[in-house]
């Protein structure tokens, strides 16, 4: 598991016991996780789960009620030339509509003491060279997302944070985003990407942090959190489903009806077959069904007790 607490070694991004309360609403509750270099970490949760609040606390835009969020041990506000350490694209990234993309990036380059050559380089990286001298007010959503990415890449940062970066992107744009995330990680950057849609990031992330209602629901590699044995479901149909249900329940399994058969979450076909054999129940069908990532994600982010 790569997303974890470390002792004695400082991860590029460390979130420790982070909580944020807005009045009576506890938006983030005691979150702790690390983000590793060279890996893409998906920060997953449904809308309103607290993802954006966590990212904003990480970036010093929101003052944590408790805990800390640091980059190499330093809060964002304490970083010298933060654009060389952290690049961020937030969900509501906005630009002055009357300013061109090139001038927007030149302003950021001036603030961060980056040469203007970097402006041309990142415009080319995100495919906006031809539109660089158009006013941003005329940009499509996808072009704005690309400009946001260009802004984040300007300082060639060690950590890249993207909040719902696929919002507003068309399918080719989503593919482009996935490739960009992988490319950044392959260059040794720590990439943290939030999304409420697992399907849009599942193909590009190595690790996941799953939250719901501001609380941790799972963290680790994608497989360990969303695709481990607990995700197995066995579909079974017997000559006498009632007898098999009783036998499985007696053996400690949960059984759900599904059409003319049964579903046994958390049990392998072998386990179900042994129970059926011991009970003398003839089976008509026995099929392993790995629970989909989406189902596992929904199960994790559904209301209930944290993992």
């Amino acid at each position: 598991m790569r997303v974890r607490h470390h002792v004695g070694r400082m991860a590029p991004v460390e979130v420790r016991d982070l909580s944020k309360r807005f009045g009576s609403v506890l938006a983030v509750n005691n979150l702790s996780f690390d983000i590793e270099a060279g890996r893409v970490t998906g920060f997953l949760g449904s809308n309103g789960a607290g993802k954006s609040t966590t990212l904003r606390a990480l970036l010093g835009l929101v003052r944590p009620s408790a805990g800390s969020a640091t980059f190499g041990g330093r809060r964002y506000e304490e970083l010298e030339r933060p654009s060389t350490k952290v690049g961020a694209v937030l969900e509501d990234a906005s630009f002055h509509p009357g300013r061109t993309a090139r001038n927007h990036l030149r302003v950021l380059a001036t603030t961060g003491d980056h040469p203007f050559e970097r402006v041309d380089a990142v415009l080319a990286d995100v495919g906006l060279t031809d539109a660089a001298d158009r006013r941003v007010g005329g940009y499509s959503m996808g072009m704005r997302q690309r400009l946001g990415i260009a802004s984040a890449l300007l300082g060639d940062p060690e950590v890249l944070i993207l909040d719902e970066p696929t919002n507003g992107l068309d399918p080719p744009g989503i593919v482009w985003m996935r490739e960009l995330l992988r490319a950044q990680a392959s260059r040794g950057r720590a990439v943290l990407v939030s999304s409420h849609l697992l399907a849009e990031v599942a193909q590009s992330v190595d690790d996941v942090v799953v939250i719901s209602r501001g609380e941790m629901r799972g963290r680790g590699t994608l497989e360990s959190v969303l695709g481990d044995d607990e995700g197995l479901v066995t579909a079974v149909r017997a000559q006498d489903n009632e007898r098999l249900t009783r036998a499985l329940q007696a053996a400690g399994h949960t059984v759900k009806r599904s059409g003319d058969g049964l579903l046994v979450p958390g049990a392998s076909p072998e386990q179900v077959g042994i129970v059926a054999g011991d009970a003398g129940v003839y089976l008509v069908a026995l099929t392993p069904q790995a629970r989909s990532l989406e189902q596992a994600f929904l199960a994790l982010t559904a209301d209930g007790q944290p993992a």
């Binding site: 970036l59 010093g60 933060p82 990234a93 906005s94 950021l108 603030t111 802004s151």
Partner: peptide, 8 residues
């Protein structure tokens, strides 16, 4: 937000 990110 972008302005404060660039100049915390």
């Amino acid at each position: 937000t972008g302005t404060v990110l660039a100049a915390p």
